[in-house]
């Protein structure tokens, strides 16, 4: 099966009509402490292949809404690969193949009728290295609303930019230099700018791929604080190398090892009382 990145919408199903997809009742994740929402994304038997090499083996995972889910595990364990399946970023790699089923709000995101462009407007992503576009701060945040046509007037766009920057906790620092280049900000500021850029299109899910690995501890603390605030509005999935970070920001944790999902559960449980031996070894630092 080969994915084409951008499929033109079928002539048969016009702009407004909802895609046909089997609606499966979404189980509410109940176990564990903390305010955990209903399931937002549900993955069943997801495998990913790069050419002949299999990177991910039959991962099944429920990701609740309004929650921070941390994906942890040693490098090369497939956590980033799994993250990228959730907004179909793997489509951009030509020899990459995904099997299994990933549902968002009960809808198969790999279905033919789902447009990756639309999906990515609903599932935002923040990368390891801050990657602001070589444009002004304002233009960076306005990028999403502009391409998706979300603002009908300049005023509306200004509001979106302001709100997004405020939510990303960057407004105070940049309000007086919105039109200076985004690449001129510090690393931590750049990462918050990229988060503001992601939330400017009002996504439902934000995927974060080791968002703090390139930052210093102070900047990291700010981002973690921000993630905690954003949890109220969004479903957040974060890949992290740092177990301390997973423990600090997430309510639920999934541990990956060698391309398989080993264990998942409330963060507290995983860190205090893991069921699997391998999880225990990893969090106690015996490997990784």
């Amino acid at each position: 099966m080969k994915f084409k990145l951008f499929r033109a919408p079928d002539g048969s199903q016009g702009g407004g009509s909802a895609p046909e997809a089997p609606v499966i009742s979404t189980p509410v994740v109940t176990h564990g402490a903390g305010p955990v929402g209903p399931t937002k994304i549900s993955a069943r038997d997801v495998s990913v292949f790069y050419g002949d090499k299999q990177a991910l083996y039959d991962v099944s995972l429920e990701i609740p809404d309004k929650t921070v889910t941390a994906l942890i595990g040693p490098s090369g364990c497939g956590k980033s690969t799994f993250l990228r399946t959730m907004n179909r970023m793997n489509d951009t790699i030509s020899h990459c193949r995904v099997t299994g089923r990933i549902e968002m709000d009960g809808e198969d995101i790999n279905a033919k009728s789902v447009d990756p462009v639309l999906l990515r407007a609903r599932v935002g992503m923040v990368f390891q290295k801050p990657n602001p576009f070589p444009k002004t701060i304002y233009e960076n945040v306005a990028y999403g609303p502009r391409i998706h046509g979300l603002a009908s007037s300049k005023g509306e766009l200004d509001d979106i930019v302001q709100i997004s920057l405020k939510r990303a906790g960057l407004w105070e620092e940049v309000s007086d230099r919105l039109h200076s280049p985004g690449t001129g900000l510090s690393g931590g500021q750049q990462q918050r700018l990229v988060i503001a850029r992601a939330i400017a299109v009002e996504p439902e899910v934000i995927l974060m791929d080791e968002p703090c690995s390139a930052l210093d501890p102070i900047a990291t603390a700010k981002i973690e604080e921000l993630i905690d605030e954003l949890r109220e509005r969004y479903c957040i999935v974060i890949v992290t190398h740092s177990m301390a970070q997973a423990a600090r920001v997430s309510q639920r944790t999934a541990f990956f090892h060698l391309g398989r999902l080993v264990e998942t559960g409330p963060t507290e449980e995983i860190f205090t009382n893991p069921r699997e031996r391998r999880t225990l070894d990893y969090i106690t630092g015996r490997f990784g």
């Binding site: 990145l5 970023m89 951009t92 990657n131 576009f133 391409i147 850029r197 299109v201």
Partner: peptide, 23 residues
């Protein structure tokens, strides 16, 4: 990373080329 950033925002290829790569 700039291409990834743009695609992850839901930009199409031509939008990425015109608004990110070419500038």
């Amino acid at each position: 990373s700039l291409r990834d950033g743009s695609y992850a925002m839901g930009a199409t290829k031509s939008e990425t080329v015109k608004r990110v790569l070419l500038p």
